[in-house]
Nucleic acid binder design. Structure first.
Lengths: 239, 239, 239, 239
DNA sequence: CATGAATGAGCCTTCATTCAT
DNA sequence: CATGAATGAAGGCTCATTCAT
């Protein structure tokens, strides 16, 4: 057959062809199309919930044919899970960055609390959470998986942060795990349930969040702050 | 078969049946039957969620015919709403009683906090809340209505309670509304989200709740308690 | 509740109601509707084969709604199997009656052979057999079941019949089972394969079958007939 | 990526590939590729039947692209027909060779009967026949064409053979056409229908076929053999 | 008035075929 | 000219709702 042609030549040739094929990715491999589908799916799933969303709706919204969706995702559930996974990634991405570099404790807590509160109560994130909760009857573990890889990881980072502050002598906490939950809840005081039940139809304003988070951090530090923290803060203020 | 039986006989027979059900209420008015339907619906909706529950399931579970259900409830959604309304009533019934008679502040807060936390995280109530949240894309305002008539009213009662305590000089709170939310959240620290996302598959234990509520009340009183409260508590303890 | 009413009365009353309910059979129990569905299914399945027949076609042909079909039959396969079962019953019903009362052996064989040959090569039966064969990739055992309860039973009856003739000293056969197959095949000589492959588009004529069966019976008796048979036949003719 | 590669390079590359396939035939004309497709199609069609076989399966099995298949065959049906045509050729090829050179009549019939019976009841051939029968509702005339060019031609050869034997004074047959069918059927006694309905799941054994064919040939010769045949056979045996 | 058999729109999914690359 | 990603009609089946009994 091709024995007269060196392998190197063939390889080179195939590379060439590969290059030329650019723009026709393998089935189920085109990341652009994948995104397109997930974007359509997001709009439909988030608006209608898992069950009420029909693959036809998604087809229409995504602008691809039904067959194509099924090349990229084995079925409705997998499409939904992929969407939720992506969503989870987006939501919690960078959320905990500021806990890495800790200067002033109170300011850090306030800044983090605001970001946390704002993200979690943003219209889109609330919708996503609602959808996950609603689908978890149908897809068991989906909610658990979401929580584990999202909120749980965040919680762990808060624990680590608090431990660092304890080490620095700024906090004195018996049950750090509980304290981390308390902190988070204080930052969300009332907001999460209001939003998730759609009692609030809009995300809270920046001012509301400011007010809530400040009050929450005050409370938290009054409860767990050491004298050294108080001194540090005085210094900080006087400076 | 039936042809040999005269009409008189049939009438007699029907009268008998009628008699057994003495005073048959107008269509869709019999509260017993209504309850029967809602009870069946509850079992099915709570177990399967709104979409997955079929009217046939409910029919079977309730022991009434499909036609009858449709006399009492215009459609699946209305039946679900009625169920949720009832459920809401049951859940929040008596929950705030102990806020009426306030003796020792700390003890009252702890007792109330425990009841609140236990109720809201109980398997059944979590399931109900999940179902409401899941269905709220389908039935707008359903979640809002649920929140408004349930958690919101409870919140208002807490506000009233706190105001009373302020009046008695036991607490000093700038933003009572916020404080009420903070209190509630501290009692639930972490639990609500864990349960609603099915990360926790079982309701928290009595001990867990004890621990969380105590810690939360401590924090709350450390933040908002007045000197008079402290004195009162000392007295209480010394006595 | 009804304790004041004797059980006898209630029973009587229910019987009455039952009588009145005549004409509204339970779901999936109305034999008329069942027949209606099977009749529609027959037309469609037989015309198009199992796969190509769509439930929509059957719906249309049977004049019932899709839902109704699924009340009577769990799925397409079960409907098909029910149809085939019925068809099998119809086909082989009474086919072997004349083997029961055996007078003149040759005449009996000829009469039976004709019936057999005519039935099996009739347009409708051929179609049914084709459909079964075509579906047996999808529904394993279906063909086997059909054969077992149809042709196989017939074969057994032929065996019994031949054994009786042997007992009467009319036949002498080493392998009766094989002889029974031989007899059947001789009666169908060429016809079955021609029909099943639709090489013949019409059923064979009466004359063709006459000719084939006579020739086959001659052959069969020449091979297996005893002297006593020959004598008996001479007598029969001379008389 | 590919932009940096000049057209000249690409052309060179393509020439290379072209060179490797020296003498590329016109579209849909390469017999090697055609065979490749049909081979893949055979495996799939025979295993799954016409409807259940998907063009994707065939694509995979044949190792060619879908587009290519559609260059060689207008659609699924035509591909199937081509396959069956080929299969038919293979099945009946050489089957009738031994009827050409006739020495001892009985031995020839036995040898031929065995080959016939074995071929027609072999798993593969039965599968093929089932597939044809199953598809013949879909593709009219397919079965007829198969029969005409396969079994029918075989039948004609048997007729010719029998006529030769008659000429040689070995047989005395009124209706040679019928006799040919009778002979064939006797060789298959019971087997064909058992196999085609999948009542038998395995091909008959060599011994079974031996037994059946011998018995069939006996019967056939007892019915149609002349005295000269009997003498000839005696001679044969005594020698 | 209760009943539950019947309805049929709509669901998710498959796959023969086309056509841009 | 081969390729295989994309298409979308059509498939089997479910279930909220209706209406004759």
């Amino acid at each position: 057959m091709g024995e007269i042609v060196g392998n190197a030549d063939i390889d080179a040739c195939e590379d060439l062809l590969e290059g030329l094929r650019r723009g026709r990715p393998a089935a189920g491999q085109d990341p652009v199309k994948r995104s397109q589908i997930i974007d359509g799916a997001r709009r439909v799933f988030i608006e209608k919930g898992f069950e009420a969303a029909s693959m036809n709706d998604i087809t229409r919204e995504a602008g691809v044919s039904k067959g194509t969706i099924y090349v990229y995702f084995a079925n409705k559930e997998e499409l939904f899970e992929a969407l939720i996974e992506e969503e989870r990634g987006t939501i919690f991405k960078n959320m905990y960055d500021m806990l890495e570099r800790a200067d002033d404790l109170r300011q850090t807590l306030i800044k983090f609390g605001k970001v946390l509160s704002m993200k979690i109560t943003s219209a889109r994130v609330i919708q996503a959470q609602r959808t996950v909760i609603g689908a978890s009857d149908r897809i068991p573990d989906m909610g658990a998986r979401f929580y584990e890889r999202g909120p749980k990881r965040g919680h762990d980072k808060v624990v680590t942060f608090l431990n660092a502050a304890i080490e620095r002598g700024l906090l004195e906490i018996e049950d750090v795990d509980l304290a981390a939950y308390q902190f988070t809840e204080l930052c969300l005081a009332g907001l999460f349930r209001q939003c998730i039940f759609a009692y609030r139809t809009k995300a809270p304003t920046q001012d509301e969040i400011d007010h809530i988070v400040r009050s929450g951090v005050d409370m938290f530090l009054k409860a767990y702050g050491t004298e050294r923290l108080a001194e540090g803060e005085k210094t900080l203020h006087s400076s």
